[in-house]
Computed example of a mutant assay.
Amino acid sequence: MVNTLIVSGGSEPGRDLLERYYKQADKVIAVDKGLNYLSKYGFEADYIIGDFDSVDTKVLADADQDKLIKYPSEKSMTDFEIALEKAIELKSDNIYLLSAMGDRMDHTMANILLLKRLATLDIRGYILDENNLISYVDGEIEIDKNDYKYLSIVVLEDTLVTLKGVKYTLDKEKVSFPSSLTISNEIVDDKGYIETDKFSLYMLTDHKENI
């Protein structure tokens, strides 16, 4: 199994989160400003990708120049997607994506939806921050009960959803797009079971604020 960590340029991850996934990574990819976050704690990247318009100039100068893969600022895909393609090229089985969310909602939404690219290749992708984990279900999946409080399913088209081992169960329930029916559930058994007939996102969160 090849585990790849991608650290992008969104909201800065805390040290504990970054260190946890850094230690279990076989390959590490820094995306532009993500190099700042890794360098702050003395962590090194195997590949440094981007147009380097947001990384600190000293951090970039101190990096191993042989690891730099520079792209022009005007291009047909984001630095994040380029890094994702690199992780695919590395034959990753699991890709952990830190700092993939932030103040730029356009980038955040695009990054989340790019998880479908991984689904088509049977690669498991996880977008994480201090409060959330986002991944996908394309068929069926079991999720261990863990420290997250809430489990939500976000369908992207009309979808049949089955949920077991959770507070609010469903049995091949048609969930229309858009809908909040499958938001803020909770895993109550040792494992939660999700089955969908269409690609959907699942989200785990321990943040308590409602909007």
Rank of each mutant, 00 (worst) to 15 (best):
196 T>D: 09
71 Y>V: 11
160 L>Q: 10
92 S>K: 13
152 S>R: 12
47 Y>A: 04
82 I>E: 08
88 I>Y: 12
89 E>H: 02
26 D>V: 01
17 L>A: 02
128 L>E: 04
139 G>H: 08
200 S>L: 14
3 N>I: 03
26 D>W: 11
69 I>E: 15
19 E>I: 00
189 D>G: 10
199 F>G: 07
17 L>N: 04
156 L>V: 09
108 T>R: 14
38 L>W: 05
50 G>T: 11
104 R>L: 13
84 L>I: 15
41 Y>E: 13
95 I>D: 11
148 Y>P: 05
143 I>S: 14
114 L>Q: 01
136 Y>H: 15
186 E>D: 07
193 Y>P: 14
87 A>N: 13
93 D>M: 05
155 V>S: 07
187 I>M: 13
60 L>S: 03
125 G>P: 12
202 Y>T: 01
13 P>V: 01
152 S>Y: 14
56 D>C: 11
21 Y>W: 13
149 K>G: 01
60 L>A: 10
180 S>L: 12
46 D>M: 06
97 L>T: 04
126 Y>H: 15
145 K>D: 05
186 E>T: 04
20 R>P: 02
114 L>S: 05
47 Y>M: 05
19 E>P: 02
145 K>A: 03
11 S>Q: 11
173 E>I: 00
140 E>R: 09
38 L>G: 05
120 T>C: 02
34 G>C: 09
177 F>K: 15
122 D>H: 12
20 R>C: 02
196 T>K: 15
58 K>P: 04
188 V>T: 10
178 P>L: 02
116 K>W: 02
33 K>C: 03
44 E>M: 00
104 R>P: 11
178 P>A: 05
132 N>Y: 15
136 Y>D: 06
118 L>K: 12
4 T>D: 09
173 E>V: 06
123 I>H: 10
181 L>N: 01
162 T>E: 11
11 S>I: 12
146 N>S: 15
201 L>G: 00
126 Y>G: 12
201 L>F: 15
201 L>C: 09
171 D>N: 14
74 E>L: 11
76 S>Y: 05
186 E>A: 14
117 R>G: 01
102 G>W: 03
104 R>W: 14
66 D>Y: 12
